[in-house]
């Protein structure tokens, strides 16, 4: 049984004040996420990622299509015991402290007072908020609120965690900690479904990704499958010897990078380039293949899409 099963999910919004028109935010999305995998939901702003998450959480209702989470329909509230959700830019009751907030959310799972206390302390520690446990949320920074959001999403040990842009607002240390939490959840056998536009995070974490653009699914698969594994160039990083300058031919082709040079060239031209570099007493620091990254794929998709896709207007009300 898939952890998440999305079947033709479509959402139209009414836009305009007087003359309402319908705009399609999500278009016939079908997707399956397996239990225990980290699934990345990629797409630029306005792609429909948040709309999809909100549909799955029952915050908005689909125009067409359906979805099942752990085999149960999305309008089954009891199923929410097994899921956790971090919304994009989470907002909380700012008159509560972090400890009170987590205790409040834990109450909905029916834990005893002692169990809640233990869980809250443990989760605060895990998201790095132990020292701010008794500070009111109105005094929290954006990054701290994000951590509190992650804490409430995992306080009840859900089987599936939905994270909408979990790295948003976090500094590099915070991002690293969130990555660790996501990997930790996977180790515990949990399913993580997270949306992001930070592609390096997706490449680093995800078993599979889906790419969404203008409400439509553009591709699903492992990051390695989505992007081309074919090597389409080689890259040489080298350092000229002290007091030596590069011959004009090489200097023209290589790009200076902080006292070193970077040369990108076809694989067939690699050995002749070695000879040129050796001839001017330069030191080769690294030689690496250049592959298409998820970012290349993503940018190509976004650049191509406006011509390739018809307008998303879905009609007039």
């Amino acid at each position: 049984m898939p952890a998440i099963e999305i079947l033709g999910l479509t959402k139209d919004y009414a836009v305009g004040f007087w003359r309402k028109r319908m705009r399609r935010s999500l278009d016939n999305l079908s997707l399956e996420v397996n239990e225990g995998e980290i699934f990345g939901f990629l797409g630029p702003n306005g792609a429909g990622k948040t709309t999809c998450m909100k549909l799955l959480m029952g915050l908005i209702f689909p125009t067409a299509g359906t979805a099942r989470i752990l085999g149960r329909p999305i309008d089954d509230v009891a199923m929410h015991r097994d899921i956790g959700y971090l919304p994009e830019q989470p907002y909380f009751y700012d008159y509560l402290t972090a400890r009170e907030l987590l205790d409040y959310y834990a109450r909905f799972s029916g834990f005893s007072a002692a169990e809640r206390r233990a869980r809250v302390t443990r989760v605060l520690e895990r998201v790095g908020l132990a020292s701010a446990a008794d500070v009111q949320l109105r005094k929290f920074s954006k990054g701290m609120l994000q951590r509190a959001g992650i804490a409430q999403a995992i306080i009840h040990d859900p089987r599936i965690v939905f994270l909408d842009e979990p790295m948003s607002g976090l500094d590099p240390i915070g991002r690293r900690e969130v990555r660790d939490i996501i990997l930790d959840l996977k180790t515990q056998g949990r399913t993580v479904f997270f949306s992001t536009h930070i592609l390096s995070d997706a490449e680093m974490l995800c078993d599979r990704v889906a790419v969404l653009h203008l409400g439509k699914l553009r591709g699903v698969g492992s990051p390695g499958k989505i992007v081309s594994v074919e090597v389409h160039a080689m890259e040489i990083l080298f350092e000229p010897a002290e007091g030596h300058s590069l011959p004009p031919g090489l200097a023209q082709r290589a790009m200076p990078v902080g006292g070193r040079y970077r040369l990108e060239l076809p694989e067939a031209a690699l050995y002749s380039a070695f000879d040129e570099i050796r001839a001017c007493n330069a030191r080769i620091l690294s030689v690496s293949p250049v592959r298409q990254t998820l970012e290349d794929y993503f940018l190509g998709l976004v650049e191509r899409a406006p011509q390739a896709t018809p307008p998303v207007e879905a009609g007039t009300r």
């Binding site: 929410h80 015991r81 959700y85 971090l86 989470p90 907002y91 959310y105 909905f108 409430q152």
Partner: peptide, 14 residues
């Protein structure tokens, strides 16, 4: 307006 319902309705509450 404050979107505090987003997290609340992800809990098992009708």
């Amino acid at each position: 307006e404050k979107r505090t319902l987003y997290t609340l309705f992800s809990k098992p509450i009708r």
